[in-house]
Every structure is written in structure tokens, then in C-alpha cells.
């Protein structure tokens, strides 16, 4: 709220994340996994939708949001993911295809944000940290998948694993430049 220049944050990516959670948590009220699982789903949904609402509605933020540079077209990500989900899924039911779509979409949802960072020369710290921790969170999943693969029989989820791996790869070069800027204590800039 303090630094109202939402220059670095991509509204496109925020909207894609809201779509990811909306299509992934359709089973929230039908399949109870655990209190933690339900609470976190509510947190993910409320936080992603409130960020989108805030960036769209709030006059102060909307004015400073960098819409001229945040021009990545959603449909170039949403449509291929939807088609892929219709072709490759674990079960051909509405909920399962929606869930698979959300898995594919989450893998590429960060792209508008990374493109925006490349376009805005000076990346402010908050945005850089935000993207870094988004990527770090995702890479921790890979550790979790390895652990579960070796401790749980029949724990095989190719769709989740491959999408999660692709998503982490997309962050790889960002991590490289981010950690370099942190190590050399210089401003984070991404190559054009």
C-alpha cells in the first residue's frame, strides 16, 4: 500500500493465477483433504482475486500500473493449456480436465510477469523478491515430490511433475540474474 507504484507487478499474471486457483479448487467443498488444505485453498483464492480486484479497481494503483508494458495476451497461454488439458489428462471429467488445465496454466502463468520485468528497466526490490519467492515455493514442491515418490507406493503424477518442472525451469534464468544481483549487490536487471 505504501509504494503505490505497482509498476513492476503484472496484472496479467495475477489474473492467470486467479484463474489457476478458480479452476483447480472446484473440488474444495466436495473432497475434504484436511483443514490445512481447505484453509490454504481459501487463502490462495482470496489473495489472488483481491490482488486482481485491487489492481483493477483501486484508482491510485490503477493509475500507476504499467499497462502499456503489461501487454502479454492471456489467450496465447490459456487456449493452448485448455487444448492440452482436453488431450492429456488422467480422467475425462469436467473437474479433472479443469484441474489439469490449472496445472498446465500455472506452469506458464509467470511469463507475463517475467516479460514485464524485462521491459521495465529498474526492477524494484519488492517485485524482485515477490517473483523470487514465487519460484522458490514452486521448487520446494519438487523436493516434496521426490520425498513422496520414495516414501509412498504408487505415488506417480506425471502431469504434475512435468508441469512443475517446466515451471521451475522458467524461473531458472530469473534465479540466475536475481542471485547474481544479490551477490554482487547490484540492481537487478534482466537481459532484454
Amino acid at each position: 500500500r505504501k509504494n503505490t507504484n505497482k509498476r513492476g507487478v503484472s496484472l496479467k499474471t495475477q489474473e492467470l493465477y486467479a484463474l489457476v486457483f478458480a479452476t483447480r479448487y472446484l473440488d474444495m467443498f466436495t473432497d475434504f483433504i484436511s483443514l490445512y488444505n481447505t484453509v490454504m485453498k481459501l487463502i490462495f483464492l482470496s489473495s489472488s482475486f483481491s490482488i486482481v480486484w485491487y489492481m483493477r479497481r483501486h484508482k491510485l494503483v490503477r493509475r500507476s500500473y504499467d499497462k502499456d508494458h503489461d501487454t502479454f495476451r492471456h489467450q496465447f497461454l490459456v487456449l493452448p493449456c485448455l487444448i492440452l488439458a482436453l488431450l492429456i489428462h488422467e480422467q475425462f471429467t469436467f473437474k479433472e480436465v479443469m484441474w489439469t488445465f490449472s496445472i498446465y496454466l500455472e506452469a506458464v502463468a509467470i511469463l507475463p510477469q517475467l516479460v514485464l520485468l524485462q521491459r521495465t528497466r529498474n526492477i524494484d526490490n519488492l517485485t524482485g523478491q515477490y517473483v523470487f519467492f514465487l519460484g522458490a515455493y514452486r521448487s520446494l514442491y519438487i523436493l516434496n515430490w521426490i520425498y513422496r515418490y520414495f516414501t509412498e507406493p504408487h505415488y506417480v503424477h506425471w502431469i504434475t511433475w512435468i508441469s512443475g518442472f517446466v515451471q521451475t525451469l522458467l524461473y531458472a534464468d530469473f534465479f540466475y540474474y536475481y542471485l547474481n544481483s544479490w551477490k554482487n549487490n547490484v540492481k537487478l536487471t534482466l537481459p532484454a
Binding site: 483433504i33 485453498k41 490462495f44 480422467q91 471429467t93 484441474w99 516434496n144
Partner: peptide
């Protein structure tokens, strides 16, 4: 019927 695929991860 088909067993429902359970997704227990966020």
C-alpha cells in the same frame, strides 16, 4: 465406475 482421482496437493 472410475475411481475419482484425488489431488491432495495445493
Amino acid at each position: 465406475g472410475l475411481e475419482t482421482v484425488e489431488h491432495d496437493e495445493l
